[in-house]
Design a protein around this nucleic acid. Sequence first.
DNA 1: CAAAAATAAACGAACGTTCTTTTATTATCC
DNA 2: GGATAATAAAAGAACGTTCGTTTATTTTTG
Lengths: 197, 197
Amino acid sequence: MRLRDENKELAIREKALEMIVKEGFDGLSMQKLAKAAGVSPATIYIYFKDRDDLIMQIFETENARMADITLDGFDPEMHFEEGLRIQWMNRARYCLENPERMHFMEQIRYSPFHERLQGASKSTFIHAMRTWAQHAIARGELVPLPMEVYWSVAFAPLYQLVKFHMSRQGLPGSKKFTLDEPIMNQTLELVIKALTP
Amino acid sequence: MRLRDENKELAIREKALEMIVKEGFDGLSMQKLAKAAGVSPATIYIYFKDRDDLIMQIFETENARMADITLDGFDPEMHFEEGLRIQWMNRARYCLENPERMHFMEQIRYSPFHERLQGASKSTFIHAMRTWAQHAIARGELVPLPMEVYWSVAFAPLYQLVKFHMSRQGLPGSKKFTLDEPIMNQTLELVIKALTP
DNA sequence: CAAAAATAAACGAACGTTCTTTTATTATCC
DNA sequence: GGATAATAAAAGAACGTTCGTTTATTTTTG
């Protein structure tokens, strides 16, 4: 029996992600992907059921990677401000060090694929975030809010900053925008001001 | 000479938008679109140069519509809080009344199409926003900030709320989330707290 | 009737996927 | 321990279909 060459699967995954980011979903064709990854089209179907399965599997992998990085050094028992700061740093690190993967995730998130994947998301991650917020509220470090309101204020500004950074031009008419640590801290202070009693 | 039937062009645009929202970019085929719009495939090419041109023209139209609604009742000379409140209401109104169009815009915004369209965006809109913010800073109603930081805190939370609303489920594990006026005001208050001195 | 809109039909190219064959690797046997 | 059978990976070529677009023709209307 012949063993699978895991480099092949990896090459397929990486090239597929790259093609989607560069050319969008209609830019990902199985034959072009096979050529780019240096395999036969049929080989792709050894590792993945079909085109959709390929895309979904890549998404799952990236989702897990993102969750891992986000929770690095984080503890749900942390004080609110410390936890928020760690999460911002972790998320920013992921986004800035993996711009291509980040772009892929966003493209999925706003495509019809996403609703097919909603249920599969890691609930342990969400659970950790939820208990952390609840503890912070109980300790009086965070104003009591519906989770969605809290989440929107706490993290959406960060992702908007990342988007400005990745578009390499900020708002039209501005000079180029770079998301550095002073900018991030400045924004984080505003968010903390909004969320602490 | 025969005149163009503007209903045909409209039908093409509407059906194209609908198909992209429902099935993504690879779900938009010219032949299926022609059938859906009740015209011949060749007719589409009377109104649009090619597939890309069709998508871009729809985007331009929707962009203009969005900017119009956003600026409804808005004046760059307004006080900061009043201006922000009007903009939030306008944007929310657009998003909630046109979920399909909103979804289309987001799909474009996160696709490779978007970078081809960056330059074409309405600069009068951005200009109005910029002078409004600058006046507010001069009057001491708004803390001085880089435009990107300000924008991220001022509007990103609203769009995140809209996204929760449109996904019809909020955060995993929560009950269904509906963006109503109390929720919006509550979030807006937090944002104002962050941005005012 | 002139001219542009609108169509039906067709073009080659590219699509996702599969069929058939070959290649590489492990386990088995003498 | 070398030959060989067994098996799955991998490849190449091809499948029928659908793609975006165009051509040739007809229909409509100023």
